[in-house]
Amino acid sequence: MMALAMPAPLGTELDRATLDRARALDPIALRAFVVRYERPVFALLSRMLGRGPHVEDLAQETFLRAFRALPAFRLDGPARASTWLLTIATRLALDSRKKKRLPLAEPEASHQVPDASTPETERARRELGRRLAQAAEALSDDQRAALLLSDVHGFTLAEVGEALGIPEATAKTRVFRARQHMRERLADLREAVPCDSQDLATERE
């Protein structure tokens, strides 16, 4: 089985002292906040909506909304800053799809992969990226969001549910279906891509 369910590590959170200063809207801390989280925000939005100028617009709106709400953000609360911020980005992306009927951009034939070590690897990854985007296009917006949050950004199912405003059980169903769909669409890659022991349908808690 393919291991689409393997979570990507979310990385370290911004340190508490900087977050504290950001909550007081200190410009230097706000900049550090953006620098720390801009990559996952751009990644989420562009994977949800396709690449284009709208991604930067929504990324900026995500951070501005976060800044407005930062003073009320509880550092000791259950939410991590990253999950909280990506929740804002996800809701903005879903809203923009509903309101403006933003079409998903066509998956690009190529894009930059900074860590590709050899031309062969780069080509293979480029093709994989294109296939992933293409397969994800057929998912409903909610399913794509659930898959991204869970399998790319490392949200737990409870966090996915929280982000999408649905019960955990529903989040589980959505992630399961999205993985199933991706697995079916990418079945031909099994031969080309080494598999590990992770089951596509494996759920994380």
């Binding site: 990559r39 930067e56 951070f63 480029r126 992770q198």
Partner: peptide
């Protein structure tokens, strides 16, 4: 396919100066 490969899913990088603009 592992998480590293899943990251190959097309994603946009933040442009230069984005943090300052925000």
């Amino acid at each position: 396919m592992d998480d590293h490969e899943l990251e190959a899913w097309n994603a946009e990088e933040p442009p230069e100066g984005f943090a300052e603009r925000v």
